[in-house]
């Protein structure tokens, strides 16, 4: 058993090291090579614009369901006017970044790993190198920039939609008093909660792009490898997002304490 734990620990550290190396190469590339803005904008469209449906559905329905459940639970205590503030705090601090991260990992992370993996096994990455183009400059940097811009915006959008859906479910549908609902919302939701959502979204985007790019770049074994890369990218980035979310919750609470603004 100890052997298995040791082996898995070394395997995890090795993997983390490889991803960290790609991160380092990407940061260096951003400073020493010209940034391909046209490719970055294409990726913003791919990541941001084409993720609209998943983000809208995730944000709106999670906010709506969360508000409804809170209403059913809190109605017995006469605290239903707090539904909006509790939903907003939960969505901003935890649910919107984590759920958006998981959805984007599934949609965009898989696509990045599959596209780069296909290029790897069909020698297109070797062709890039033979033409004097560093694969990190051409493939990873534009996707990283696009993810750094898109993910906070997507998380912000999910938060906004959850606020709207929670309001619609609570006030017009379930009959919560609007002034009390809004007063609680303004009282308990602070600017720090918005910052936390955006910071988490940014960092989850970084996790997705580096895990997915790494999985693509290390693809071998032809079609079987290309089939495996997106699955690995989604599983690993999802687990990393959930684990990072836990750590970030504590870290961000040090710098942006809950209840302050």
């Amino acid at each position: 058993m100890f052997t298995a734990i040791g082996r898995n620990t070394f395997s995890f550290l090795g993997y983390a090291g490889e991803v960290a190396q790609l991160f380092r190469d990407t940061v260096i590339s951003m400073f020493v090579a010209p940034i391909r803005w046209r490719l970055a904008f294409q990726q913003i469209v791919e990541i941001g614009a084409r993720s609209q449906l998943v983000v809208i559905v995730t944000g709106a329905f999670t906010g709506a369901v969360f508000a409804a459940q809170l209403f059913f639970q809190l109605r017995g205590f006469g605290m239903e006017s707090t539904v909006g503030s509790v939903t907003a705090v939960a969505m901003f601090r935890e649910l919107a970044p984590a759920l958006t991260g998981l959805m984007v990992a599934g949609r965009v992370g898989a696509a990045i790993a599959a596209e780069i993996g296909t290029m790897k096994v069909t020698e297109q990455i070797d062709a890039l190198r033979s033409l004097g183009v560093h694969p990190t400059d051409y493939l990873v940097v534009p996707r990283t920039i696009a993810m750094m811009i898109s993910m906070p915006l997507l998380v912000g959008e999910a938060c906004m939609l959850s606020l709207i859906s929670a309001y619609l479910v609570s006030v017009p549908l379930l009959g919560v008093s609007e002034p009390h609902y809004l007063r609680n919302l303004y009282q308990w939701v602070t600017l720090f909660d918005v910052y936390k959502a955006l910071i988490k979204g940014f960092l989850f985007g970084i996790i997705i792009v580096f895990v997915a790019s790494h999985e693509g770049l290390k693809t071998t074994n032809g079609a079987a490898g290309v089939g495996k890369a997106p699955t690995e990218a989604v599983v690993i980035s999802s687990l990393a997002i959930l684990a990072a979310n836990f750590i970030l919750t504590f870290l961000l609470n040090i710098f942006l304490p809950a209840g302050s603004s």
């Binding site: 020493v32 090579a33 296909t118 290029m119 069909t122 020698e123 297109q124 070797d126 062709a127 190198r129 033979s130 033409l131 004097g132 560093h134």
Partner: peptide
């Protein structure tokens, strides 16, 4: 290092077995 190979690679062209066109 990879970035220093650019000048060498501009002198040498390579036709890959699969042609490796950017699809």
């Amino acid at each position: 290092p990879e970035r220093k190979l650019t000048d060498v690679r501009r002198k040498i062209g390579m036709l890959f077995q699969s042609a490796a066109l950017f699809d």
